[in-house]
């Protein structure tokens, strides 16, 4: 494993036995993650994201394959892995009856930090994550957003090399989600921590992740930056509505010539099609249609989303691909049970 590679998996596979039948939740996961990266696993419920994370964090053993995290083998040296990683699961990490500051200090003790060190670190994180006003409150008194910020603090108390986040913003209102992400980005910049997360929020993966691994049915089906995935796998969605009496067949022919795309007819006056760099193509297309005497009433070009990437890869949208809980694994071991949320066109 190169020195700047902090996560490396080879053929990582996990099978569960559910009701006497075998289910392969993750198949042949082979990836390398560079130190300091912010990587997102994107996929519908049941895709195998959380199972992958649970293997990498030593919560469950793989059925086959191997992996090293922060230089330690997940099966042979789990203590080394656990010492070097922070983990924020889907649920609330703080115990309901514990006070915020107490829980941080206990977590520091679990990671071998001395009293002074863990006190300083806890106070620093309480300040960084704006938990000052709640430090002496119990976890059960916190709002969803405050609990999530505490979870992040618990994951970072020991200054881990890698922070695993499983659906970090699920269940939060938009304002709390944005606030949480501000904190994650700021803390990452401050500590240089590698962040590896799962999400089914398309716009979060698109906006924040430097690298997106799209998972479906236990396999990574695409792996690149969000921009590259969208550029390579999905084009801009263009819609032209012709003026009254416009010749739809001739317009469609022009689209075919200039964009190399087959336009879909929507009603008597509207054409819809996708094309790489469609926004740049649109002015040229409008000039061509004008030259041919075809008036255009409205024209829109919408850039692609990661859902379009998923559609291009699998033939279905992420929303459609969302499966009921437990389709890939027992609910107690792989809890990708949340509703898919994100933008689709």
């Amino acid at each position: 494993m190169p020195s700047d590679t902090v996560i490396s998996t080879q053929g990582l596979t996990k099978r569960f036995t559910v009701k006497k039948s075998e289910v392969e939740a993750v198949t042949d996961l082979t990836v390398d993650v560079q130190r300091g990266a912010l990587v997102a696993f994107l996929g519908p419920n049941g895709a195998g994201k959380s199972t992958s994370l649970r293997m990498l964090t030593t919560l469950i053993p793989p059925t086959a394959g191997s992996a090293t995290v922060a230089g330690y083998d997940i099966q042979k040296e789990p203590a080394g892995v656990r010492s070097r990683i922070g983990y924020v699961g889907q649920g609330s990490s703080g115990s309901f009856a514990q006070r915020v500051r107490d829980e941080l200090l206990s977590q520091g003790a679990f990671y071998g930090m001395g009293r002074r060190e863990r006190t300083e670190r806890a106070d620093e994180l309480i300040a960084s994550l704006e938990l000052d006003a709640f430090a002496t409150r119990t976890v059960q008194q916190l709002s969803g957003g405050q609990k999530r910020r505490l979870d992040i603090a618990l994951g970072l108390i020991h200054a881990p090399e890698v922070l695993f986040l499983d659906e970090p913003s699920t269940g939060l209102d938009p304002q709390s989600r944005a606030n949480l992400w501000e904190h994650i980005i700021a803390l990452r910049a401050r500590y240089g921590t590698t962040v590896f997360l799962t999400t089914h929020y398309l716009e979060e993966a698109d906006r924040y992740a430097e690298r997106v691994m799209v998972m479906d049915s236990g396999r990574v089906i695409a792996d690149d930056t969000a921009a590259a995935l969208k550029a390579d796998l999905a084009g801009d969605a263009l819609t032209l509505t012709l003026e009254e009496g416009g010749d739809l067949a001739r317009a469609s022919s022009a689209v075919g010539r200039l964009a190399g795309a087959t336009a879909e007819h929507r009603g008597d006056r509207t054409l819809a099609f996708t094309a790489p760099s469609g926004s740049a193509l649109l002015p040229r297309l409008l000039r061509e249609l004008d030259h041919e005497g075809i008036g255009v009433a409205t024209a829109t070009a919408v850039p692609p989303t990661l859902d379009d990437v998923f559609l291009a890869l699998t033939g279905r949208t992420l929303r459609d691909a969302d499966q009921p809980e437990g389709d890939d694994a027992p609910a107690t071991t792989d809890t990708e049970s949340h509703t898919l949320e994100g933008s689709t066109r």
């Binding site: 881990p160 401050r190 500590y191």
Partner: peptide, 29 residues
């Protein structure tokens, strides 16, 4: 830009020390 680096140390499980830490945590509430 990283202004601080990860410093997590390797901590090997120790039954006595860990039991004490868990006990103290449980007693806090």
């Amino acid at each position: 830009t990283a202004t601080a680096t990860a410093t997590a140390r390797i901590v090997r499980p120790q039954l006595g020390r860990d039991t004490w830490n868990v006990l103290i945590r449980e007693l806090k509430p």
